[in-house]
Amino acid sequence: ELREAFRLYDKEGNGYISTDVMREILAELDETLSSEDLDAMIDEIDADGSGTVDFEEFMGVMT
């Protein structure tokens, strides 16, 4: 189920989504998050600083 959700956002099928897209997902899930909260969450999610979120990083957030 998580893989299907990931595929919805990984429109190009390249195995990752951008941190911008991940930020939008988080904002949709919790509309009360401030910009600073979102920045901090993205920094934590994208631990390797690649600017992308792969499936493993995505799973870590969603579980």
Rank of each mutant, 00 (worst) to 15 (best):
S35N: 10
D37Y: 06
V61L: 13
S50L: 06
D37P: 01
G13M: 06
D48N: 13
L33D: 00
D43H: 14
A40F: 10
E24H: 10
E36K: 09
Y9F: 09
E56Q: 10
V61K: 05
G13H: 06
E31D: 11
E57H: 15
V53A: 02
D30F: 14
E28M: 14
S18L: 05
M62Q: 03
A40K: 14
D46V: 05
D43M: 15
G60C: 14
S50A: 05
L26A: 02
G13Q: 07
E1W: 13
T32P: 02
A5Q: 15
D46E: 03
L29E: 02
E56W: 13
R23E: 01
M22E: 00
D54N: 15
Y16N: 03
Y9D: 04
E56F: 10
V21L: 13
S35D: 14
R3L: 14
D10C: 10
E31P: 15
S34T: 14
E24R: 12
L26V: 03
T63M: 11
E36C: 11
D20G: 10
I17D: 00
S50H: 07
E36A: 12
T19N: 07
D30T: 09
S35T: 12
T63R: 08
F6Q: 02
T63K: 09
F6G: 00
T19D: 02
G60E: 11
F6R: 00
F6H: 02
V61S: 05
G60N: 14
K11P: 13
E57G: 15
I42H: 01
D39W: 07
T63W: 04
I17G: 00
F6C: 09
A5R: 13
G15N: 05
Y16R: 05
E12N: 08
E4M: 03
Y16W: 14
L38R: 02
D46G: 03
E57F: 08
E4N: 05
G60D: 12
D30K: 07
D30C: 13
G49T: 05
E24K: 14
L29P: 00
G15M: 03
F58H: 00
E36P: 05
E28Q: 14
G60Y: 15
A47P: 14
R23Y: 04
V21P: 00
D48K: 09
D54P: 05
A40V: 10
T63Y: 06
G49F: 04
T52P: 01
E56N: 11
G60M: 15
E28G: 14
V21I: 12
S35A: 10
L29W: 13
M62W: 08
D37V: 10
D54F: 13
I45T: 04
R23H: 02
K11M: 08
G49I: 02
D43L: 14
I42R: 00
E24V: 12
D48L: 07
F58R: 00
Y16S: 07
K11N: 08
E31C: 12
M22C: 05
D39C: 06
S34F: 04
M41W: 15
E4Y: 01
A27G: 08
I17Y: 01
G13D: 09
L38T: 02
S34D: 06
R23V: 02
E44A: 14
A47C: 14
E12A: 09
D39K: 08
R23K: 10
D30L: 11
G15L: 03
T32M: 06
A47W: 12
L8M: 11
E12S: 07
L33W: 11
G13R: 04
G49W: 03
D10A: 03
D48E: 09
G49V: 04
G15S: 02
S35F: 09
T63F: 05
T32W: 08
D43I: 12
E12T: 10
I45R: 01
A47I: 12
K11E: 08
S35G: 11
E56D: 11
A47H: 13
F55Y: 12
D54W: 10
L2Q: 04
M59D: 02
E4A: 06
D20F: 07
L8C: 15
S34R: 08
I25Y: 05
A40N: 10
G15H: 03
D30Y: 15
L26F: 05
R3V: 13
F6W: 14
L38Y: 01
S34V: 05
D10S: 02
A47F: 11
G49H: 13
T32Y: 08
D37G: 05
L8H: 14
T52R: 11
D43K: 14
T32F: 09
V53N: 00
G51I: 01
E36S: 12
D20M: 11
S34Q: 06
V61H: 08
A47N: 08
M59Q: 09
T32D: 07
T63S: 10
E36I: 08
A47S: 12
G51R: 05
E56Y: 12
V53E: 00
D39S: 07
D46S: 07
G15K: 03
Y9T: 02
S50W: 04
L29G: 04
F58P: 00
M41S: 01
T52Q: 11
G51S: 04
E4H: 05
D10L: 06
E57C: 14
V21T: 12
A27V: 08
Y9L: 12
F55N: 01
E36T: 12
S35L: 09
I42V: 06
E1F: 11
D10E: 02
G60K: 15
E4F: 02
E12K: 08
R23Q: 01
F58Q: 00
Y9W: 12
G15C: 05
Y16T: 05
R7G: 14
